[in-house]
C-alpha cells in the first residue's frame, strides 16, 4: 500500500505525518488528561498516607534564585529527582531518614522544569533545609574547600553579591520541602 508513496508526494506527506501523529498525540497530549497528579499540587494532611505537607508557589526572591540556577546552568550537573531506586532514597536522605521518592505533584509549579539528565554532582531534589547560609556561602566561594575533591567551579560572583546569594539560597531551601519528610532535622532547628 505504501508503495504509492514512492511516486505520489502528497500521499507520502499524509502517510508520514499520520503515522507520526498517532504516537505523537498519544504520548504528549493524552497522558496529562489521564493522570491528574501531573497538574494537581501535592497536599496531604493525613500521616497514614505518607509524608504530610503542601506544595506552594515560589515567591519573588525564590523565583529570582531559580533564574540564577538556570542562568549558571546548575541543571547540567545536578538532577532534581529522587527516583524509584532504593539507593536514591538512602543517598539523598538525611540523618537516618530516607528521602521520599519524587512524585509529579511536587513539580506542578515548575517552569522551566529542572529534573535534569546528568549527575556530575549530587541530586538536589531534597537539598532544601539541609545546609545553612554560612555553609552555602563558603561552598559558592570555593566548593573544594568544603568538599575536597569536588570539581564544582567557584561562583564568587554569587557569593559576593548579597542579593543574588540570598535569592539563590532561598530557592535551594525550597527544594523538596513540599513533603515535610524530616520535620525535626532542618538546619533551622
Amino acid at each position: 500500500m505504501l508503495q504509492k508513496a514512492d511516486y505520489n508526494a502528497a500521499f507520502f506527506v499524509a502517510a508520514a505525518l499520520g503515522l507520526f501523529f498517532i504516537g505523537g498525540l498519544l504520548t504528549t497530549v493524552v497522558p496529562p488528561l489521564i493522570d491528574s497528579s501531573w497538574s494537581k499540587p501535592f497536599e496531604n494532611s493525613d500521616p497514614a498516607n505518607g509524608p504530610v505537607g503542601k506544595l506552594r508557589q515560589l515567591n519573588e526572591q525564590e523565583l529570582q534564585g531559580r533564574a540564577i540556577y538556570v542562568r549558571e546552568g546548575c541543571w547540567y550537573c545536578h538532577t532534581q529527582q529522587v527516583r524509584t531506586i532504593l539507593a536514591d532514597t538512602k543517598r539523598y536522605g538525611w540523618r537516618g531518614v530516607d528521602a521520599p521518592i519524587s512524585t509529579p505533584d511536587e513539580f506542578v509549579y515548575d517552569s522551566p522544569h529542572m529534573f535534569g539528565t546528568k549527575r556530575t554532582g549530587p541530586d538536589l531534589a531534597r537539598v532544601g533545609g539541609k545546609y545553612n547560609d554560612q555553609w552555602h556561602r563558603a561552598h559558592f566561594r570555593n566548593p573544594a574547600d568544603l568538599v575536597p575533591g569536588s570539581i564544582m567551579p567557584p561562583f564568587p560572583w554569587i557569593a559576593n553579591n548579597e542579593a543574588e546569594f540570598k535569592a539563590m539560597v532561598a530557592y535551594l531551601q525550597t527544594l523538596g520541602r513540599a513533603k515535610d519528610w524530616r520535620p525535626d532535622n532542618d538546619y533551622e532547628k
Partner: peptide, 28 residues
C-alpha cells in the same frame, strides 16, 4: 521529506508547546 515534516512538529513541541505547560507535563 520526513525529516522536514517531523522536525517542524518536534521543534514546535520542544520550543513552543513547553511554554504553556509546567512540571512533569513540560518535561514530557
Amino acid at each position: 521529506m520526513g525529516t522536514i515534516l517531523w522536525t517542524a512538529f518536534v521543534y514546535l513541541t520542544g520550543n513552543f508547546a513547553t511554554l504553556f505547560t509546567t512540571g512533569v507535563n513540560q518535561a514530557n
